[in-house]
């Protein structure tokens, strides 16, 4: 059935030692043509806390889950990309416009966009996530209702925009006007929330590669977001994932779209500077 992927795998096995075929040493090439950087030199701002290398969450998944992401025909996240392509072309709101009215073909206009978000918006005087920018266009260019943060429509649109940057390195700016937001996110990353008193770093910095009960801990990178999760069979935004991880420490969570999660997203994204944009990735 999956002829292309099988071919790609066969070629791969022939050229590389079988030990490197799966697991933490596996290589990811989408559709046999887009190479994805899943291990990259650690950005300087990390000061070596993750060692020399940063790693995509893809490397920590089972062979089966890994394979599901290798070909767009197998990747269930691509269905949502198709749906977003339809809403890209749909006129909505008081101005009689669609996304396409201003941005034409996303394959051209949205190339490279995902890789630099979240980023500082000079006019608004704030750090914006991709979702915030999409809603800004809806409200102020189209005269349409904003979409609900991290819910179906907007997450699918983020996936469509992300696909145009697949294989390009994440490259979010952390200096200049974004710096104070980045610092806020960094402080959150090391805060031990909740009755379990666990920080993001406890699990994703000190223990990546280790099992916590049945879960294989990754570095908690967000280069693959939005992520299709086999667990809930839909696309998930990074803020929903942050919320779930904080809830699991028996803490009061923050809300998707909150200023706190925007700051955390900027910081976590910057920990992945150099990894490829992978979205929509597949995880368990």
């Amino acid at each position: 059935m999956n002829f292309k992927a099988t071919l790609a795998c066969a070629a791969f096995v022939a050229s590389v030692a079988p030990a490197a075929f799966a697991g933490e040493d596996a290589e990811l090439v989408l559709n046999g043509e887009i190479p994805i950087v899943t291990t990259a030199p650690a950005p300087a701002h990390l000061d070596g806390v993750l060692g020399d290398e940063i790693k995509s969450g893809w490397l920590f998944r089972s062979d089966e889950t890994q394979a599901t992401q290798m070909d767009d025909f197998d990747n269930p996240g691509m269905i949502f990309v198709d749906q977003a392509q339809a809403s890209w072309d749909t006129v909505e709101g008081s101005e009689g416009k669609s996304c396409a009215s201003c941005h034409n073909d996303p394959a051209e206009s949205m190339k490279g966009v995902r890789a630099t978000y979240p980023k500082w918006n000079e006019e608004a005087g704030e750090v914006r996530t991709l979702a915030m920018q999409i809603n800004d266009c809806r409200e102020n260019q189209m005269g349409a209702e904003p979409w609900k943060y991290d819910k179906g429509d907007i997450v699918s649109m983020e996936a469509l925009i992300s696909v145009q940057s697949r294989g390009m390195p994440v490259n979010v700016a952390i200096d200049g006007p974004a710096q104070s937001t980045w610092e806020q996110g960094k402080e959150m990353y090391y805060t031990r929330y909740g009755q379990f008193e666990l920080s993001c770093a406890n699990c994703h910095e000190d223990n990546f590669g280790n099992m916590i009960r049945a879960d294989h801990l990754s570095q908690g990178q967000i280069n693959g977001f939005p992520v299709y999760r086999l667990k809930n069979t839909k696309l998930n935004g990074s803020h929903s994932r942050f919320k779930g991880c904080i809830r699991d420490t028996r803490a009061e969570t923050f809300n998707p779209g909150s200023p706190e999660f925007v700051a955390l997203e900027l910081y976590v994204a910057s920990r992945g500077n150099g990894l490829s944009v992978e979205a929509p990735s597949v995880r368990n």
């Binding site: 805060t191 031990r192 929330y193 909740g194 009755q195 008193e197 919320k243 904080i246 809830r247 699991d248 420490t249 028996r250 803490a251 009061e252 969570t253």
Partner: peptide, 14 residues
């Protein structure tokens, strides 16, 4: 002595 203590795994404040 907790930071943002929650009500078990509900994600709500306690």
């Amino acid at each position: 002595g907790y930071i943002r203590p929650g009500d078990a795994f509900t994600g709500k404040a306690a």
